[in-house]
Write a protein that binds this DNA or RNA. Structure first.
Length: 468
RNA sequence: UCCCCGAUAGCUCAGCCGGUAGAGCAAGUGGCUGUUAACCACUGGGUCGUUGGUUCGAGUCCGACUCGGGGAGCCA
């Protein structure tokens, strides 16, 4: 019985002949009754954006007992005949010969997902049921399509996927606050004779954390496989409460040997253009929904992006632009200061109107591993700033010269000993190399126009919230 | 963590100068119709986030707390 069923996607895509018998399974969205002796059911199974219209005639043996009591959320299996729809709104429909109630809705009055509009805030409270909504269904399908496109892009460009570890004992990744991983009994912590917590007794024999970046590991493998990328979950423990921040999110980090900053800027541009094209091709139904209900500009924005070259600015130029801007900024702009959100927004949203690459930042505001430029003042870093989402990509050419890297580590007061394995990469066959990190959910936000990153991942983890 | 805003029916919201609560949708019943978030009528549904205070009287005013949102910082 189950094996006969087809997805609604297959039915609506025209893969079945008119008059064919079909079996579909899904959840009822709406029911409308007609005294002409039929009921209309909109049934969705999530395989595509559009629901399938089912015609349920009152001659069905369970019409009175079951069909007339179907409400939003009921799970049904429908057997029927595929036919052309005489009314507007859908090309095909199914004339049901059997409707089986698989899962009832216990109390229709309290079923949280009504066919009416719900706010995204409300849906977050029902993250376990929100996958049945148009919005979250569309987000999830686009997300899957995007993930696959990313793997495909790298695969086709000779990059090897590298699953870097999620648990790390390296507390020097420097990219953010870390979540501790421990098996110690927090109520009875072992102490050293000096009174410190004795991590030698912890599971890994030293302090361990969830990764904030796979970059350092990726650099290691780029020194052997030339082109690698990570794509996996990443954890940041900042007490950050904004529409752009998740405690657990996904990041893509390509790392390329024998490459400089401009080459990875080009790689970033090609990557974005490729994946945007794929999403537009593979998910026109969902993107049309976003355009109608979420962000009228989302498709136009991607189209425009695909056909325009990246705008590159040097940090120094960006500062000059900001100084000349007529807009009043809360925080003054001067060379050497990090760009504030309002500055990034001005550059991406007003000055350029789409993502912009800012390169060569002052060394003081960037990480130790970024390659020192010849001016001795700036490092070969780049950020891609997207309107509405802020920094979606951050990358750099890495310092491949042993002496220069050691100097930076010491200058910043970091412990050379902790970086021994990382320094080894500079001792044995070091080459110029570069890479960047893409915030996957931020990218989703740019594509779909969905404003809050918490609606772009299935079960968002944020400060004070790890439900479900 | 900081600043601002909010919390009233299952959902989205209204509720004016303090006088014990209202709409639309959803649900139930009936009517009508190859319908498209259908439509029409009726019905049920609320200790107004929690807690303390002011007051004869608090959804309304004040304090604290909890949760949510926007922004900042942090970050991708």
């Amino acid at each position: 019985m189950l094996s006969q069923a087809v997805s609604i996607l297959e039915v609506l895509a025209g893969k079945m002949a008119m008059g064919a018998e079909v079996v579909v399974q899904g959840w009822v969205r709406t029911r409308r009754d007609s005294k002409a002796g039929i009921s209309f059911l909109a049934v969705t199974d999530g395989s595509c954006f559009h629901p399938l219209q089912i015609i349920a005639p009152n001659t069905l043996p369970n019409y009175e007992s079951t069909v007339l009591h179907l409400t939003a959320g009921c799970a049904v299996r429908v057997t029927g005949t595929l036919s052309a729809s005489p009314a507007k709104g859908q090309a095909v429909e199914v004339q049901a010969t059997d409707i089986e109630l698989i899962g009832d809705v216990e109390n229709p009055e309290t079923y949280p997902i009504s066919p009416k509009h719900h706010t995204v805030e409300y849906l977050r409270e029902y993250a376990h049921l929100r996958s049945r909504t148009n919005l979250i269904g569309a987000v999830t399908r686009v997300r899957a399509s995007l993930s696959y496109a990313i793997h495909r892009f790298f695969h086709e460009h000779g990059f090897y996927w590298l699953p870097t570890p999620i648990i790390t004992t390296s507390d020097c990744e420097g990219a953010g606050q870390m979540f501790r991983v421990t098996t110690l009994d927090l109520a009875h912590l072992p102490k050293t004779p000096e009174g410190q917590i004795d991590y030698a007794q912890d599971y890994f024999g030293k302090e361990s954390f969830l990764t904030v970046s796979g970059q350092l590991n990726a650099e290691s493998y780029a020194m052997g496989l030339s082109k690698v990328y990570t794509f996996g979950p990443t954890f940041r423990a900042e007490n950050s409460n904004t529409s752009r921040h998740l405690s657990e999110f996904w990041m893509i980090e390509p790392e390329m040997a024998f490459a400089d900053l401009n080459q990875i800027a080009e790689l970033a541009e090609n990557l974005l253009k490729f994946i945007f094209k794929v999403v537009l091709q593979e998910r026109p139904d969902d993107m049309t929904f976003f355009e109608k209900q979420v962000d009228a500009k989302c498709i136009e924005r991607l189209d425009h992006f695909i056909h325009e070259p990246f705008v590159h600015l040097d940090y120094t130029e960006a500062v000059e632009i900001l100084l000349k801007a007529k807009k009043k900024f809360e925080f003054p702009v001067h060379w050497g200061a990090d760009l504030q959100s309002e500055h990034e927004r001005y550059l991406a949203e007003e000055y350029v109107g789409r993502p912009v690459v800012v390169k060569n930042y002052p060394k003081e505001i960037k990480a130790f591993y970024m390659r020192m430029n010849d001016d001795g003042k700036t490092v070969a870093a780049m950020d891609v700033l997207a309107p509405g989402m802020g920094e979606i990509i951050g990358g750099s050419q890495r310092e491949e010269r042993l002496a220069a890297l050691e100097k930076r580590i010491v200058e910043l007061g970091l412990d050379l000993k902790s970086y021994e394995w990382y320094l080894d990469l500079r001792r044995y066959g070091s080459v110029p190399h570069a890479g960047f990190g893409v915030g996957f959910e931020r990218l989703m936000g740019y594509i779909t126009g969905v404003a809050n990153i918490r609606d772009l991942i299935p079960f968002p983890r944020t400060p004070k919230n790890a439900r479900f």
